[in-house]
């Protein structure tokens, strides 16, 4: 009796372990299938004309130039706004406001913000940036919205990286008569820069893929010309893709697939750079 029960249990154990492997791989396999499908659908559509073409009602001549330029603009502006604020806030929380009610409040608040859906940030940007600050549906308004969206990610990454800097380094700097800010600027930030940069790039790669908050702020699906200033109206790749997906003609589905390939290349490249930087930094600095 017991031995049969044992055999039974061992069998269940084996079955679960097979099911475990399947589960672990199923998501990845589906992802590979999806991406394969997209490549088959869209790769032949990618050519110079597609990259430099303006939007059009005819799928065969429509291109992603304006959306691509919009994405680059938004990426740069978002980085310029979120990087200094996020790093500064992370430094404050880790080095200055360690104790006290305020820092407790800041900490809870930041983890709460990280859980707010991106579309809610869109509503914030629409009301505050686009309307009250009168920026309209401009690149600037969209970038400020995305900057707020990724701020919690950058702050958390900054804090983690600063935490990893050994205190002996700070001690040495203080013992030589450095002020707090000199120590942070000359020792702590250089030593944690790799980690911070990794976090910032990952956060930006999330921003590049966002469509919903920008749609709410008022980014357009159809923009006839590439933006020239931060105050111009704009579209971005994900919105262009969204727009093409919702068109009935099959030609636009092909366009969407082709644009997705471009978007995925950008996203994965950014993730790859981030992971490469992290590994390089971990190897370079050992205390």
């Amino acid at each position: 009796m017991t031995s049969r029960k044992n055999r039974n249990n061992r069998l269940k154990d084996k079955i679960f372990s097979v099911w475990g492997i399947i589960s672990t791989l199923i998501g990845l396999i589906l992802l590979v299938i999806f991406i394969g499908d997209i490549i088959i659908e869209g790769i032949h559509r990618i050519d110079w004309d597609f990259l430099t073409g303006l939007p059009s009602r005819k799928p065969e001549i429509a291109g992603i130039f304006t959306a691509m330029m919009g994405t680059i603009w938004v990426l740069l502006l978002t980085a310029m706004i979120s990087f200094p604020i996020g790093v500064a806030a992370g430094v404050y929380l880790e080095e200055y406001g360690k104790k006290g009610r305020l820092s407790k409040l800041l900490e809870i608040n930041i983890s709460n913000l990280a859980g707010v859906p991106s579309i809610i940030y869109g509503l914030l940007g629409l009301e505050i940036f686009a309307r009250i600050m009168n920026l309209g549906s401009s690149i600037l308004a969209g970038s400020m919205t995305l900057a707020l969206l990724i701020l919690p990610i950058i702050i958390v990454a900054t804090r983690e990286s600063i935490k990893a800097v050994p205190s002996s380094l700070k001690d040495a700097s203080f013992a030589l008569g450095a002020t707090k800010w000199q120590t942070i600027y000359l020792q702590v930030l250089p030593a944690s820069f790799g980690g911070i940069l990794t976090g910032v790039i990952l956060a930006l790669s999330r921003a590049v893929g966002e469509a919903a908050p920008l749609i709410v702020v008022g980014a357009l699906a159809y923009v006839p010309f590439a933006p020239k200033t931060p105050m111009d109206e704009f579209s971005v790749l994900p919105i262009q893709i969204f727009n093409w997906i919702s068109r009935p003609q099959h030609g636009f589905i092909t366009n969407a697939a082709a644009a997705i390939i471009i978007l995925l290349v950008i996203t994965f490249a950014m993730n790859g750079v981030a992971i490469y930087l992290r590994n390089k930094w971990q190897k370079k600095i050992k205390w």
């Binding site: 672990t24 998501g27 990845l28 992802l31 299938i33 999806f34 499908d37 997209i38 659908e41 790669s205 999330r206 590049v208 893929g209 966002e210 469509a211 919903a212 994900p238 893709i241 969204f242 997906i245 589905i253 969407a256 697939a257 997705i260 978007l263 995925l264 996203t267 994965f268 993730n271 992971i275």
Partner: peptide, 21 residues
């Protein structure tokens, strides 16, 4: 890290999968 990739894919791309595949 490979599984984390699933979360890194932009959501419009997932929408495309859902609708067309």
């Amino acid at each position: 890290p490979s599984l984390e990739m699933l979360a890194a894919v932009p959501t419009v791309v997932y929408g495309f999968f859902a609708l067309t595949v």
